[in-house]
Simulated scan of single mutants.
Amino acid sequence: MAGSRGYSSYRGRVPRWKIALAILLALILLAACTFLFLQKYIVYDDSGAVRLELPWMKPDGSSSLPPVSDEDLQIIISEPEGKDVEELHILQLPDGSLEGDWTQAVSALRAGGQNAFAVTMKAAGGQLLYDSRVEAAVSSGAVQGNEQSMTALEGLLGSEEYYSIARLSCFRDSLYANANMDGAGLKNTGGYIFYDGNNTQWLDPGKEGARAYLYEIARECAALGFDEILLTDFSYPTEGKLNKIEYGSVEQPVNLRAFLQGMADALEEYDVKLSVELSAQTLTVGTDQVSGQDLSDAAAIVDRIYVAAPAEEAAVLRERVAAVSDQVTLVVEGTALETGDYLQLP
């Protein structure tokens, strides 16, 4: 009797292309393993040529390369160089540099050989020469910069080649003193805004409104990417009918020291240095009772001190600062300076 019909397990012959593919894959795998095994026997001679040197091909005791142990292997990671330099040679950019072609400023730096630049961000009188977003500055009409000034700043600060300094005039500020006389302006004994010998008005260092305004501007400049904030006009008025100034109950040096410490605190979160401009009188004597400046107070807070002085006085003034603090650098401002830390004025 014939067996029952049905499907068997036979599936037919394996196609030849599958057999060829399997052989090819096996050869590729073998080649890869061989390559990995032979890598340690690949050597380079002095000319950079590559050759294979198997163990039985080398004379006894010879080696093309010295043995390297884990202790001999050193991995060196280079850190990016910062813009801190041992000696600053600064070019003060002329007022109006942010309104024109900023590349001309870079050309001037290269021609003069300086490694840093200072640009005025807040002028004496109170004008902000960049497009500030500080609300009090906008409402008082102090903002004179525009989109062009911000483009110039972007170009100047975008270069890692030069150390950058934002120059801020502090208390000589007619604009904000008039806009906020009660909260920030320096008054006379009659209760009105004080005019100095040049018909200029000032902010009162003892008023919180004046301090907060300047802190906010400095923080904005730090956020833009400057390496250093330089405070100028850091004083009370020194010209005019000074006996008519309403100084308040706190002495001038105390108010200036409190402001300077507050500025350092306000900038603490930023990677920025703080510096201040003092008079040659302050550096020579140590204090200036009229302006309220005190060398020791400033040196205890800031990173650098600036002074406008002739080149022949630079050495003596540097000694005066060094006698007070060995942590603070003196930068001399002038027009014919070539050695030491200096700021070249226009």
Rank of each mutant, 00 (worst) to 15 (best):
Pro66Met: 11
Ile193Met: 08
Arg304Trp: 13
Val328Ile: 13
Ala336Pro: 05
Glu81Tyr: 09
Ile305Cys: 04
Glu53Gly: 01
Arg318Cys: 06
Ala105Asp: 03
Val50Met: 03
Glu268Gln: 15
Leu175His: 02
Ala280Leu: 06
Ala152Met: 06
Gly126Leu: 00
Leu21Tyr: 11
Gly206Ile: 15
Leu93Asn: 06
Tyr213Lys: 01
Gln127Trp: 05
Asn115Phe: 12
Asn198Val: 06
Tyr195Gly: 00
Gly113Trp: 15
Leu52Glu: 02
Gly262Leu: 10
Leu278Tyr: 02
Ile76Tyr: 15
Ala184His: 07
Gly155Gln: 08
Glu87Phe: 04
Trp202Ile: 07
Ala177His: 13
Glu216Tyr: 09
Pro55Gln: 02
Tyr306Ile: 10
Pro66Ser: 10
Glu160His: 14
Ile229Thr: 05
Ala2Phe: 14
Gln74Val: 12
Gly126Val: 07
Ile77Trp: 09
Tyr247Val: 10
Asp227Val: 07
Val307Ile: 03
Gln144Ser: 10
Glu160Ile: 13
Ile28Cys: 08
Ala308Arg: 11
Met181Trp: 13
Ala311Ile: 08
Ser296Met: 14
Ile77Phe: 13
Ala299His: 07
Arg133Lys: 12
Ala212Leu: 08
His89Phe: 12
Leu25Gln: 05
Tyr192Pro: 02
Ser8Ile: 06
Glu312Gly: 01
Gln281Ala: 05
Ser235Thr: 13
Glu246Val: 04
Ala309Glu: 06
Ser235Met: 13
Ala137Glu: 02
Glu313Trp: 00
Ser279Tyr: 11
Gly100Thr: 14
Ile90Asp: 05
Ala111Gly: 03
Trp56Lys: 07
Ala223Val: 04
Gln148Asp: 11
Gln344Lys: 04
Ala322Pro: 06
Ile229Gly: 08
Gly262Phe: 14
Met57Trp: 13
Thr339Phe: 12
Leu98Cys: 00
Ala309Asp: 02
Glu277Ala: 10
Val68Gly: 01
Pro59Gly: 12
Arg219Trp: 14
Gly125His: 09
Gly82Asp: 05
Leu295Ala: 03
Val272Ile: 11
Ala142Val: 06
Glu53Gln: 11
Gln327Asn: 11
Cys221Ala: 07
Ala108Thr: 15
Ser296Lys: 15
Tyr41Cys: 05
Leu65Glu: 07
Leu278Cys: 00
Phe37Trp: 12
Glu53Asn: 15
Ala222Ile: 04
Phe35Cys: 04
Ala323Met: 07
Arg211Met: 11
Ser275Cys: 09
Gly96Ile: 15
Trp17Leu: 04
Tyr215Asn: 10
Ser62Thr: 12
Asp60Thr: 10
Asp227Lys: 03
Leu295Pro: 11
Gly158His: 01
Trp102Gln: 01
Ser325Val: 02
Thr34Val: 11
Gln261Thr: 09
Met150Gly: 06
Phe259Val: 05
Gln92Arg: 14
Ser169Gly: 13
Leu30Ser: 09
Ala137Ile: 02
Asp72Thr: 08
Ala124Leu: 03
Ala142Gly: 02
Met121Val: 15
Cys170Arg: 05
Gln74Ile: 15
Val14Cys: 02
